[in-house]
Amino acid sequence: MKSYSVSEKQWAEILHKALSHYGIFAPVSKESTVDYEEITEKKIDQIFYDSIKPTTPLKAFFFPIKENVVAAKKQTPRLILGVPACDLAAIDLLDKIFLDKDFLDIYYQENRENTIVFGKDCYSFNKSCHCTAYGLNPYPEKNCDVGMSHSDGKFFLTPFSEKGEAFLKEAGIASSAREKLPSNVEAKRQSTTDGLKKQNKDIPDGKATRIGIEKENEELWKKYAAACVSCGACAAICPTCHCFLLIDKKNFEKIKNWDTCQYPAFERVAAGEDPLKKLYNRLKNRYLCKFVHKPDMFGEIACTGCGRCIDACIGKINKNEIIIEACK
């Protein structure tokens, strides 16, 4: 893939100009976390391009925590910078669900179309990162408009879509010649990939995971569920979890609100029956959904190895420990 190169200074100027047309969101570093913030003039210099994954998954921009899906909406076009490959990969599944041609979700569609996504190379990772376990690489390969690499005071911008190319053209970048990514970027990518592979050598792939968790093993789920408090954090920060509840407001308005099978009564019917009444069944359901049912329905697992569920769990339940034990 060939890229356009710009200096950090040039890129900052482009963002200054872009602020008049776009809302800009990018990772900003706090003491112990990195997360997306809305970028103002003053914050352009604070954007943390070499961050690990932001705490919030990309899905929150397209499928917000709460969204009125009956009322009219007006949205400023957005740029989202610093999106890791694990979040980009999740777009495949979200698009299949929300852009399903039988029932197209025009709110999700609008959120997608109004957004220019800048994928980024990961040059560092934390203990929970494991995208390589599922065949992904820690740099943009799909589902973004522009891929961004950063090295030696320069950004290397690779257009992935017409929308991305058009933005770069408008910004005056796309007039220069495209070049191959420099060898130092390739070396940094390789080093991150090698590090992730080494860290995650014991994690079974999607197919092996399926076999492991389909086994009858009630004791395993009970053991791990003992530390679960059904808080739903694992689903909230998951880039692929898509479940929601429609909450009714006056005038037949509806709020599409994140929901999860980890909450009690998620599947309960009016007569009272509830297949997921027991907490350990809810925990198991999360894994069956991701590694058995989603592959059967959509042809892909619903885990991109971002590891946020491991970071977020207040019961310190480690998804990969469960899977490794289930596959023994």
Binding site: D100, D102, D105, H242, C243, F244, L245, D259, H293
Partner: peptide, 12 residues
């Protein structure tokens, strides 16, 4: 609509 997940039954 096949989106919210509440009526999931295996791969349906």
């Amino acid at each position: 609509l096949g989106k919210c997940g509440h009526c999931a039954m295996g791969d349906y």
